[in-house]
Design a protein around this nucleic acid. Structure first.
Length: 320
DNA sequence: AATTCGTGGGA
DNA sequence: TTCCCAAGAAT
């Protein structure tokens, strides 16, 4: 569907003019940003505000300027550098992605959406974003911002919580034929969604597209999420914080001191182990998956159990 | 297809 | 204080 009152070329021109003078100056938008840096920024920005990503991103690309460099580091280091960005499995997957890029793609971030999609932690949005923003490919980039802006603009709001085929078609119709220009339109739509056409209390008076917008101004009510405080999720966060702030092994008693319910604590720790975010080590816990130890200790380790002193902490929970 | 997965700033 | 929410992905 065409937005009302626009010729086909008018929409990109108006939007890009707005973007040129209103876009934030973000490091991953500099013209010399590498595909690897683009990938890092996109993963970090998943469900995470720009302002929180900025310092972590800068430190990350300084430390690991190539996939090879990250692939050569233990996963625990990636988790530690991730800091408090949230959703730490993203750090783990980005680390895994670096190893896949190194081993299967010769150290180069793929430019093909299907290949990008095979990387851990890279879904439909991130694959499209890297293909478009790093390589200038004409692909539909569909994140929550673009979906919100376009459905409001064209009056085609769909009730589905996930992007539909119709959503893709609607955006595809709005993108110019040139790949690099289309990518810039996608960036501009995202920026418009982030700065003007926000989820709640949008600043319609400042919108460059207001004369063509079909939106009636009816916000959608999201379902409320379960309480965080006191949840297993909260316990996981506390455990991870403790292990992140410690260099090595954290005794179990230190975790008990940080969380009142030992049953819940054990459950949370088990789930973190299952996710590869932490592992049992030397009678306590440490950041990172068990595979980190094999890497650090060298390939000599037999399949038989942990190579640690027989002394086992009495306070450590036994496998259940 | 519906759930689960952090975190902290601002309304 | 409570609640919302910020460039999704995996299962």
């Amino acid at each position: 569907m065409e937005a009302k009152g626009w010729g086909r070329g008018d929409f990109p021109r108006t939007l890009l003019a707005w973007y040129r003078s209103n876009a934030r100056d973000l490091p991953w938008r500099r013209p010399d940003t590498s595909p690897w840096e683009i990938l890092i920024s996109e993963v970090m920005l998943q469900q995470t505000p720009v302002n929180r990503v900025l310092p972590v991103y800068l430190a990350w690309i300084d430390r690991w300027p190539t996939p090879a460099r990250l692939a050569a580091s233990p996963a625990a280091e990636a988790l530690r550098a991730w800091g408090r960005l949230g959703y730490p499995r993203r750090a783990l997957r980005l680390h895994q992605a670096a190893r896949v890029i190194q081993q299967r793609f010769g150290g180069r971030v793929p430019d093909d959406v299907a290949e990008l999609r095979t990387l851990p932690g890279v879904g439909a949005y991130t694959a499209a974003a890297v293909a478009a923003f790093a390589y200038g490919k004409r692909v539909v980039v569909l994140d929550t911002n673009i979906r919100r802006v376009v459905t409001r603009l064209t009056g085609t709001a769909s009730p589905s919580p996930h992007p539909t085929a119709a959503d893709y078609a609607t955006v595809d119709d709005l993108l110019p034929s040139d790949g690099r220009r289309a990518a810039r339109v996608s960036l501009a739509l995202m920026e418009l969604g982030a700065l003007i056409c926000t989820s709640s209390s949008p600043r319609c008076a400042d919108c460059p597209l207001r004369s063509a917008c079909r939106w009636g101004g009816t916000p959608t009510r999201p379902r409320r999420r379960p309480a965080y405080r006191g949840s297993d999720r909260h316990a996981r966060g506390v455990i991870l914080g403790k292990l992140r702030d410690a260099e090595g092994i954290v005794p179990y008693r230190d975790l008990v001191a940080a969380w009142p319910d030992p049953v819940q604590l054990a459950r949370a720790a088990d789930s973190l182990i299952a996710d590869g975010l932490i592992s049992r080590s030397g009678g306590g816990y440490r950041l990172g998956p068990a595979s980190d130890v094999r890497q650090i200790s060298g390939p000599a380790g037999p399949l038989a159990g942990p190579r640690q002193p027989g002394r086992r902490s009495a306070s450590a929970p036994r496998g259940r």
